[in-house]
Design a protein around this nucleic acid. Structure first.
Lengths: 355, 355
DNA sequence: CTGAAAGCGCTTACAG
DNA sequence: CTGAAAGCGCTTACAG
């Protein structure tokens, strides 16, 4: 059964294209079943308007022939691929692997497939996304990376609905779903205040995204409203290492903070490790540390991190709903911004009020 | 410019299919450029056999019209989609998010797109994969989940090359790429022996995969060769929690082990936390713990885990190479099994010999 | 309910 | 080098 595929030896060096052809098609099934190809098609698409008998014959012929529908052909004629592009940049963040998992699952449950796009930076986004759009994706989900206006236009041009997950932009008209980060920041401030803290620090993530800014603003504003101020501010690039570095700078101070709120759990873990191991700080007696996201490590006993949990499942469901609605409604209406409230998860890395 | 799309009001309730039609096609470009559609096609495919002038005219017309090639149509006629299916099950394991990231990146660099498949269990694999195969994927990468023979046949049937990543099976004829887990296990045994340990434990992962079995076998065999035996054995489901539970059982013993080798880092982190926090064990003085994979957390200072690093980049590159080769060579040849040596990463969770 | 026909947007021999 | 034509494998009005 070894390949004898050059039975005519004309141009033997012509590159052998993989022979996906010759797979059985609806025509073959039709021939075998003694019906028209349209009928076969009907059996495998809506399935309406068919005698049970016709369906049976076709199904049986298909079975015997080993027929497999070709989704690419269907996509071409239907103008919809059932594929959704998912762009996620901070692959290193466990929060995002969770997001990826939830999206692929939710999407599959609804009959969609996930094209996962790796777009580490702005430049590669500009290059890669237009290529991906050639696949006539039914939608594009952006979990990060800045969506330039040029890219937004590219999507509009190809009639591909876009949606921002976990961030929003105010200038462009693009739908978004995110957790209420302002509220999340406020909640942390309130809790820390109740715990009797006095010197507050915030460790920001690198990017100037709505997410990062809202967490900080929610935190600072609430402190201010309650007569306190944010005394320390550091920032990093959202990694564990950045959290370590920020903590080092913070704790070297003469009168260091007694409460650190980090823009995400990854940085909080770094800060906690440095505080404990390099400065001998006792958590939470000497210092409270709070994160955001509730990644799995937050609940590991080495951390037991008090944090703000994002309602990821809800956010994911909402995103998909908006996306598929957008596809059927077409463009036009103003950007939808859906904000979902987060929830404080109390563990033991922060002192709490005793009342 | 608001939608006036029901200019004839027959069947107004007929569901509005998103209008992806009417996007500019090669025919439109041809008309504008005053050439044939074939010529336009040539400009956007190989690009050979064309006067620079023709190309220019076409490109300009395309630009003005905002033409975007349709990859779905191309896929249909070429019989190749440039899409690769990636099946990864243990989403919760940071090792696999790294794997996903590397695959999407490497694939994109080579002109392929990643369809990420979420297949939590055997049942859903049997249901989901055949549906995905309808997209005429150019290949399928399996990082986990058992690939049933039925599924292997399904792939063969649709002429889709499959490859196993990080595991292998001996019965079916499917290519695989994995790290040399036997060797990895041996290395750990040697190191632990050199560190003067005496009571060895192995914490296995739940699944009876080649990966899990080889790590254990490599470890046990080498101990045996050097006159020691594996005294303790526990197993779990590859999660942090399973590592915790295993450690609890192990350390409750009268004469507990002084060295624990875990099938992966996630379990090792759990074991370490339990040992330290629940049993007050000093690491590595009283107990050495070793993992496998070298996930990011292994290097976090709370763990500083001695572990075995898989050569993931290499494995990924090798996988893609085999997959694309398979596609061009067609079926026939015996299964290729590529094993790549791992590397020991010394940190501080294990005592080492002083020589 | 079912068939014939047109068409989705491309690529690719086949002749010039 | 370039055009006309066939075809990839489907879906979907349009007539029966």
């Amino acid at each position: 059964m070894e390949s004898t595929n050059s039975d005519s030896d004309t141009k033997p060096d012509k590159q052998d294209v993989p022979k996906r052809r010759g797979m059985v098609s609806q025509r073959d099934v039709a021939r075998k079943a003694g019906v028209s190809q349209s009928t076969v098609s009907r059996v495998f698409s809506h399935g309406d308007y068919l005698t049970a008998e016709a369906r049976e014959t076709v199904l049986q012929a298909a079975e015997e022939l080993g027929y497999r529908p070709n989704a690419i052909a269907r996509s071409l004629v239907r103008g919809t691929t059932q594929m959704i592009g998912l762009v996620v940049t901070p692959f290193f963040n466990p929060y995002y692997s969770h997001v990826i998992r939830l999206f692929t699952r939710a999407l599959q449950d609804r009959g969609y497939w996930t094209m996962l796009l790796n777009v580490p930076d702005q430049l590669s986004a500009e290059e890669t996304l237009p290529m991906a759009l050639r696949y006539r994706l039914d939608g594009l989900i952006f979990t990060s990376a800045s969506l330039s206006s040029r890219l937004v236009n590219e999507c509009l041009h190809s009639a591909t609905p876009v949606i921002l997950f976990n961030r929003y932009v105010l200038d462009d008209d693009v739908d978004s779903v995110f957790c209420d980060n302002l509220e999340g920041g406020s909640m942390v401030a309130d809790m820390l205040l109740a715990g009797g803290h006095e010197r507050f620090a915030y460790v920001a993530g690198e990017q100037d995204t709505s997410t990062n800014m809202d967490r900080e603003q929610g935190f600072a504003t609430r402190l201010h409203e309650r007569g306190r101020e944010l005394e320390f501010r550091e920032s990093g690039d959202d990694t564990y290492g950045a959290g370590c570095a920020a903590a080092r700078r913070l704790l070297r101070s003469d009168k260091p903070p007694d409460a650190i709120f980090c823009a995400n759990d990854l940085m909080a873990c770094g800060a906690l490790d440095v505080a404990r191991r390099e400065f001998g700080v006792v958590i939470p007696d000497d210092l409270s540390i709070v994160g955001f996201d509730d990644i799995p490590m937050a609940s590991w006993s080495a951390y037991s991190l008090t944090t703000v949990r994002q309602p990821v499942e809800e956010m994911v469901a909402c995103t998909i709903e908006l996306l598929t609605d957008a596809a059927s409604k077409g463009p036009g209406k103003a950007a939808v911004m859906r904000s979902i409230p987060p929830r404080l998860v109390m563990r033991t890395s922060a002192r709490i009020g005793t009342d």
